[in-house]
Structure formats: C-alpha cells, structure tokens
Design a protein around this nucleic acid. Structure first.
Lengths: 182, 182
DNA sequence: CCTTGTACCTAGTAGGCACTCAGTAAGCCG
DNA sequence: CGGCTTACTGAGTGCCTACTAGGTACAAGG
C-alpha cells in the first residue's frame, strides 16, 4: 500500500548530508532569522523531505545547534595573533570574504537578545570568551576590548546593508587608526 | 445563530487603540522579530480578536509600518544639538531609558538586512539620513560619522545582552573619549 | 547470500498562520 | 426617537507549522 518509494533522490553519507544541511540553514537564517526559519524550506533546499531532514537533526532547535557547532569548530583554529590590532585586521579580512555567515551571526545575535531564545546563552558565553581574550591582548583594558568589538559589529552591519558603498576592510582600518592611536 | 455577541470588551477610539497596538507590537517584535511575530499574539495582548486588529492595521505589514511611523514621529522633534558629541551623549542617555525600543530596532535592523524584508528600504534611508546629519556635524568627516554610529549600535547590543554588567552611558562616554580625542 | 544498520520515504496529526466575510452593537448627530 | 458611522465579533478558508509512526530500499559485513 502507499505510493511507490521514490529512489531518484541521492542518498548521501551522514557527514556529507549534514554539511549540506548546515550550509542551507545558514543561508536561510541569515534571510529570515531562526523564528522565521521553516523546516520545509531547509528540506527543500537539500532535496529532502522534512522527516528526512529530522532524521539528521532531531528537531528545529537541533538544527540551529548543528549550525553553530559547525561554525565554531571551523573558527577555533583559524585565527591566532599576538597583537590585538593584528587579530582584528585578520578577523575583518576573513569576514569580508563571508558576508553570508556574518549576516547569519548578525541576525542571530540580535534575535537572541531575548532571554528565552534557544541560543541566548550560547551568545552570552561566546561574547564573554571574545571579551576576555580581547581584553588580555589589550593589556587588561576591557573598555577598549568592548569598544573594538562594538565597532567591528557596527561596521559589519553598515557593510551588509550597503556593500557597494561601504568597504569593510577600509572602514575598519580607518576605525582602527582612531581606536588604537592613543 | 452563532454565539451571542460579546460586549465585555472595551471599545476604544481608533487613535487610542492604535497606540496600544503599536506598543504591544513593539514588545513582541523585540522578542521574536517580524518573521516570528503573530497577529494572534498582538491581538491577545490588546484584548482583541485578530479581525479586530486587522480592522485597524489592514495587514501584518501594515502593522509593522504603523510601529515604525509612530516611532519616527515621536523621534523627530525630540533631539537637537550643535556638536556631534553632545548629540550622541543625549541620544545614548535617552536610549538607556528605553531598552525595549532599542531592542526592537536592533532586531529589526539585523533582520531587515535581507533585501526583500518588508522594511529593508526603510532602514536604508533611515541610515542614510543618520549618516548625512552626523557627517555634517562632524565637519564633513563621513568616516567618523560611520564609526560613531557603529560604536553606538555595537555598545547597545552588548548592553542589551548584559544590562547588569554593561552600563550603556558609561561605556559610551569612555568610547567617546577615544573617538573624539584626536 | 543473508542480515543488520541506516538514510530516507509516505502518510498523518494537531495546531498555528494571515486573512476574509458578513453581521452586530456602541456612539454620535439630527 | 431615527439613522449613520465604525469598532469589533464569530465563523470559516486554505495553507503552513513542527513533529511522529511505521515502512522501504540501499549498502556494507559476516
């Protein structure tokens, strides 16, 4: 009984499928936020049915966590520097090449300000980690660390809204001149 | 036929009801974003049915526009200053007293980065207006204007995420010292 | 060849979504 | 009192939501 089972879809190994799912989801969250994200759209984007998608991530929240985990993993080992100024310069230059991911984080960062958003805590600890390491590189000046992060976040938003007019790297280098001039 | 018509709800004049709707909607958008906002929740928050709500705003998008219009109106005439530094100080001090509204704009600003978000254009022109007037006050230094706005936006996010630890006014005054030191 | 694991399916559930229609009653003007 | 406007209602439409139950077919290992 029931319709014949469809066999025209690709059957991928779990790791590969997961990677695809993360990629598609990132794009959609950047577009609609987590509350506006629909499992159906993610499934469609992967050429799957919704239950097929749920087989991999378990639930909508599991999907979100998969995305952030993946991102953190690839992030961790990529950036190292000894001077705060150099770290920022590298960070900004990398981000300038990945507008989609920057937008994903910008949207999620704002949305998750609400205390009961599923990744509210994730973003709090993420910020704390960033502040701590920046403060250390700034010789203990936490105020400067916070200003640097605020400036990067703010310029990124302006860049995302107007990529033609705003050159992220140049805008940051200008800002860094002022911030680090002393 | 049908249930007896309920007469236990307040019947408000349109202007008053509209004001209430805007207030409730602002709070909910700050919490869930526009894509996560539901007409049902807004109606509940006002003690109305959904069609009752639609009678006033027409559609979900009309609701959003009502919110932004209202805000702009009350904003326009409130702030005037001759030096950029003074304007920022006043702005930050007022915002520090309205975390809900600041969060509404933070969420909407990020969400509306997507080009087909219903208020994408609104936020682009809003930013342009801000940049232009800040640039003028900065003696034509647009880079500085952008940095000032970026810093304010960024610090506001940190403050909203951690209102206990971050004192917005103090954080801004520190930042202003550095930005305007020259 | 046969078994086991697993990637993915169809079908269905219970509820939520924005929005429409047609009607009702409250408030104001004469 | 009568008539008009309008704030608001209940009922309903068609579609979308996340998620579940149970089954199917492919692939690898014994």
């Amino acid at each position: 009984m029931g319709q014949p089972f469809r066999r025209d879809r690709a059957r991928l190994p779990a790791a590969e499928r997961r990677k695809q799912i993360v990629e598609v989801t990132s794009r959609l969250i950047a577009e609609y936020g987590f509350w506006g994200l629909s499992m159906q759209d993610v499934a469609d984007g992967c050429g799957l049915t919704v239950p097929g998608l749920l087989h991999h991530v378990g639930s909508k929240e599991g999907l979100l966590i998969a995305v952030l985990d993946e991102r953190d993993k690839s992030d961790m080992s990529e950036l190292k520097a000894e001077k705060l100024q150099d770290l920022c310069a590298a960070l900004v230059r990398r981000n300038a090449r990945q507008p989609e991911i920057v937008r994903l984080f910008a949207v999620l960062e704002a949305e998750s300000l609400a205390p009961d958003h599923p990744v509210h805590d994730y973003f709090r600890t993420r910020e704390k980690r960033a502040i701590d390491s920046f403060t250390e590189l700034a010789g203990g000046d936490e105020a400067l660390a916070r200003q640097v992060i605020a400036m990067m976040d703010g310029l990124q938003i302006q860049w995302l809204r107007n990529p033609v007019k705003v050159d992220l790297v140049k805008a940051w280098d200008d800002a860094a001149d002022r911030l680090f001039s002393k």
